[in-house]
Write a protein that binds this DNA or RNA. Sequence first.
DNA 1: CAGCATCCTAGCTGATACTG
DNA 2: CAGTATCAGCTAGGATGCTG
Lengths: 113, 113
Amino acid sequence: MLKRRTYTCGLDAALDVMGGKWKALILWELIDGPQRFGQLRRQVAGISERVLILQLRELEACGLVHRELYHQVPPKVEYSLTDLGQSLIKAMIPLGEWGEQHMELIESLDRGD
Amino acid sequence: MLKRRTYTCGLDAALDVMGGKWKALILWELIDGPQRFGQLRRQVAGISERVLILQLRELEACGLVHRELYHQVPPKVEYSLTDLGQSLIKAMIPLGEWGEQHMELIESLDRGD
DNA sequence: CAGCATCCTAGCTGATACTG
DNA sequence: CAGTATCAGCTAGGATGCTG
C-alpha cells in the first residue's frame, strides 16, 4: 500500500500517506467532524464507492482516520480524524493556502492557455 | 498531465502540481541551488532517466522549475527553482516536518509491525 | 552529458452488479 | 446504508538502447 520502505526526507514520508488523488480530499472533508460513509461519498465529488472504501481503509491503516461502527439496522459507520490525522491536516494547511492562491494559474495551465 | 480541470480546494490544486512519486523530491533537491541533469539523477535515488525528464518537463510546464541550456560541447543543462517553485517549497515545509516527526511510525506501518 | 524512442507492466481507477 | 465482488482500461512508471 505504501510505496516506499525508507524515506529520504519527511516530505517524502508525508506524501506517501496522504498523497494520491483522493486522500487529502477525504481528510479535508473530515475536518468539521465525523462523517458517515454516504455523506463522504457525496462530499468527495466524483469518487466511486469502491475507491472511497479503499482509500478509507488505507487512511485507517496509517492511523489517520478512525472508523466507528454502530451496530444498528440499517448499518451506520462514522469516519473521523484521529489525533495524528488532525496534526497532519494542520501541516497541510500552508500547502492548501498556496494552492488557493495559485489555483487560477494552475487551472489555466490545464486548459493550455 | 494534470489530473483535474477544477479543484474543490487549494490543497487539491497543490497536490496536482507537486504530488506523485517524484516531484516533491526533485523540488527538494533544487532548494540549495541549480543542479545539472546528471546531478539530479544521482541525488534522487532510484529514479530513471526517462521519468526524471518527464517530471522535470511537467514541473517546467507548471512554472515551478526553470531549465537553462548552455550551448556547449558536451551539453550542459541546469535546472533551478522559479519564484513560484520557491514559494511552493516554503509551503511544503510544515508537511515535511510532520513527516520527519512521524517517519518512524510510517516506516513501521510499512513493515507491518 | 543530456535526453529521446520503444516497449512493457503493475496497479490504480472506474463501472456495474450484488449482499448483510 | 455500507459495503463486496468482478471485470476491464488507462497511464504512471520502469528497462533498455540509441543519438546530437
